[in-house]
Amino acid sequence: MTVLEMRDVVKDYRLRNGLRSTRLRAVDEVSFTLEPGRTVALVGQSGSGKSTIAKLLMQLERPSSGEILVDGEPMPYRGARAAAYRKAVQMVFQDPFGSLNPYHTIGHHLARPVRLHHPAFSRRQVAERVLDLLRRVRLDPDFADRKPHELSGGQRQRVAIARALAPEPAILVADEPVSMLDVSIRLGVLNLLATLQREENLGVLYITHDLATARHFSDEIMVLYQGSVVEHGPADEVILNPQHEYTQLLADAAPAPERRLARHRQPTLAAREGGGQQPLG
C-alpha cells in the first residue's frame, strides 16, 4: 500500500538562449494525492506540464521546490528505499513504438523486471511469470519469442502495460497510454487498464487530453493549464459543472452528440431567437 502525495511541487527549467537564460515554470505548485484503488485523471493541453508531473513521479526529474511524500515521508532518491519506491511506482509510456527496445524480444522486456523484483527466482519461475503477465494483458504465450517490430501498436501497448505490472506496483502512471493508438483499439486498451486496476487495487494517474475517457475511467479529474491545476474534483462534477473558463472551453470542444441533435431538431427556433447562441449540454 503506497499513498503518493505531491505538495506544492514546482519544476523550473532553465532555457538557454545564447548568453541569456530564462526560466520556464513547467509545473507550478501542484498538489494532489494518489491512493490505491483510485484513478486520478490529469487533463491538459500539450505543454501544460502533464508529462513533467509523470517524470517527477518517476524520479526522472527532481522538483525545484515543494515535496513529494510517499506514505507521509519525503521521496527517497537513493538507497534501498528508492529501489523499493521504483518497484511500487511504474509507468506506461505514451509511444508504444518507442518504449520497447527493437533489439530484444517481448520475453526479455517482461523477464527483466520480474528478475529484478524476485532475484531468487529460477529460470523456470521467471518464464512462468512472463507467460502469466502475457495472459493478464490478453496476449498469447507465443508473443514472448517475438520482437517488437512484429507487433501492432495495441499489442505493443499491452506489452508495455505487462512490463509495468511485472514488479507488482501499487501505483501506475499512464502517460497518454492510448493517444498513439488506432481509435478502434483505444477502448480495448483502456478497458484492460481498468480491469487490471480493479484486480490489483492499483492507484492510477491517467494522463490524457481526452475529457471523455477521463470522465469514464477516473474517479477524480484535475485540469492542468500552464503548469498549475485550475480545477480539481470528482470526475462528473468537473465535466458537468466546469468552473474555470479553460475547463469550460475543453468541455465545449469535446464532441457532444446531444448538443448537435438538439441544434438540428430546432433549427428555426434557434434562428428566431437570434444571436446564433446554441443551448449547451
Binding site: L60, R86, Q90, L100, R112
Partner: peptide
C-alpha cells in the same frame, strides 16, 4: 525504452 529500463530499476 531506456527510460523504461531506468524506471524498472
Amino acid at each position: 525504452y531506456v527510460l523504461a529500463a531506468r524506471i524498472g530499476g
